[in-house]
Design a protein around this nucleic acid. Structure first.
Lengths: 124, 124
DNA sequence: CAGGATCCTGGAGGATACTG
DNA sequence: CAGTATCCTCCAGGATCCTG
């Protein structure tokens, strides 16, 4: 069948829906939150301490977003005062593997990038 | 040496530098620009037509950013009027492979994500 | 054709104060 | 402790007009 075939692994189409999911899940704070939760389940204020630069508002928003998309699970512990634990889900773990691939790529190619930048910046 | 060892593939550290590179290179329009240029070298207005939603300003900014980071190459063709070709670099190709991995992940997991969202949204 | 220059606006996200 | 509720700022990015 002479379909206009692409390469071997047939890269999927980038729709607005996929773009939006990536935005929600790869956003500024999500990477650090997921990274922290991969090491161990944490409570709200533990996360704040693990990620000092995040504000309470942004952390809440990030956790809600990740929870809504099924990346983390929110577990309420009925003590007094209340405690809330955040743990990564299996789906979140698959995402973390992807993020690690991103970080390995940046690490491996940062020198080339910096040379490209230096070259670009010194022109004119 | 009893360093605090991590897992097998030792996931690299997320520094501000790496975060910033990912932001510059995985941004809203970059994915579509890279995707288009992977299929074939294109000129400015070809890109505009390939990505109808992008404004001229945003496309220019995206191309400059990608060029600065060594992902695309800008080739000036001295005709009248002038023509400019944008082609993907080897480094850009490695990035595209990564993006394809992202898209494969979203494609594979979109059903789970949508179930998670439905579940989350119907709770009160 | 391939941009540069301006003006403008929405909405992300910080700071701060309060609460079940 | 784990959030909500407001207010406010800032700037990415769209719309528009102009040019080598």
């Amino acid at each position: 069948m002479p379909e206009t075939s692409r390469s071997v692994a047939d890269p999927p189409q980038l729709t607005a829906e996929h773009r939006e999911l990536l935005d929600e899940v790869l956003d500024k704070w999500s990477l650090q939150v997921l990274d922290t939760l991969c090491e161990r389940t944490s409570r709200f204020n533990e996360l704040r301490r693990a990620i000092p630069a995040v504000t309470q508002k942004s952390l809440t928003a990030t956790l809600r977003r990740l929870e809504r998309n099924g990346m983390v699970e929110r577990v309420i512990v009925r003590t007094r005062p209340i405690a809330v634990e955040y743990r990564i889900t299996p789906l979140g773990t698959t995402l973390q593997e992807l993020i690690d691939a991103l970080l390995r790529w940046t690490t491996a190619n940062m020198p080339r990038v910096q040379r490209a930048r230096a070259h670009f910046d010194e022109e004119t």
